[in-house]
Design a protein around this nucleic acid. Sequence first.
RNA 1: GUGGGUGUGGCCUAGCGGUUAGGGCGUCAGGUUGUGGCCCUGAAGAUCGGGGGUUCGAAUCCCCUCACCCACCCCA
Length: 418
Amino acid sequence: MHDTLPEEAGLWRHIRDTAERVARLYDYRQITTPIVEDASVFLHTAGDESDIVRKEVYLFEDRGGDALALRPEGTAAVCRAYIEHGMASRPQPVRLFYFGPFFRYDRPQAGRYRQLWQFGVEAIGTDSPAADAELIDLQLALYRELGLTGLTLRINSIGTAETRRAFGKVLEQHFLPYLKTLSVDSRRRFDTNILRILDSKEDAQHEAVLTAPSILDHLSAEDRAHFEAVQRHLSDLGIAYEIDPRIVRGLDYYARTVWEVEPPGAGGQSTIGAGGRYDGLIEVLGGPPTPAVGFATGIERIALNMRERGLWAAGDSTPDVITIPLGEQGASAAARAAAVLRNAGVSVRNGLPGRSMRAALRAADASGARYALIAGDAEAAAGTVVLKPLRGDDPAGTEQRTVEIESLAAVLTDRPGT
RNA sequence: GUGGGUGUGGCCUAGCGGUUAGGGCGUCAGGUUGUGGCCCUGAAGAUCGGGGGUUCGAAUCCCCUCACCCACCCCA
């Protein structure tokens, strides 16, 4: 798990602000759910026997003996809240977004952490293919706003659980003759989750995988019509996409549309965000049958991609002004000047007394502040301070001048760039 | 869960059986009386991830362990 240090804070704030702004542009509203939930919210939705539950959820018991979980994802919790707060009686769909930390007991690796931050958006209560397309549009708009271009959108339709069960049988017939030549992992998947063989890394070039039947040929007429409508909407929105029948999802509550977004030169843990339709989830959680669609995107991976592309240079925030108090009267004059400026919205680091002028100016220079404000006993007696521009590009020139404390705010805020 | 790699002051790193464990960056102080960026001087800061062992002697070799990183697996 990671600390976010001051040098990184600006990037995180930028990503978060951009995500929330874009979500609101599409009229989604924020929901914040607890970090800890009753374990059943996540266990039942993921299937009690899956790897997800057995190995990757942080589980613990509270003092009352209840089984709790650190939330591993957002969608199930949002759906729990939808049911609990009777949101089915609000205008449908309910349009929600969230931003926060999640926890997964995975082995960490590039772009994968045990505490991870996600931004997610959900439209609950609609089966319209236009909603699927809107969410994809929103997700791509976020990446675009952040400067992440050249991403690949891959979409697929996986029908219903019933479709996938039938398709699994087809795949069994297909892979059976090749079984001995497949990798160990694929042979295991043959029994546990046969659809996953399709996106095996090891066997990606294996004849059996290359010639495998496509789930798209096994969709129901309704599912096919839905998928075609999603594609029409994407085209209307001017969104480029690839159809990739190898994108699958393991859990039964998924339905129809699934998508993933990858940066160029993808490999490894590269997916930057993924979404899909989960028409069966609300029902699994004890609510009425309610169609829904959403996506989530990893903040660490966004940050990783932005840094790799030089879209954000690490840097501290800098104060506008740093004071240099000299002597006792100077210290109180500096404090007064700082208060005046802060009231006007100018950020001020009030320097600590006791340093030599030289040392204080060195520190002021290193701080990146635009101005040093020198307050000595002589100035204090006159109710003034010395305002010294520190950067060569100051519009008022580089000459320092004496300014009355009470007029400091006007002097500084009049100028652009402070 | 499986495999591989790396661990030396805050950061980067030299050293790979005998060194007071060296350097760079950063930090702090100073370079004369109230003026920065460069430069110069000085200081603080390391039980060499931890624990065992081999050896006259270990940061350097061996074993165990922990942490981190990378890949696989998994990916809600």
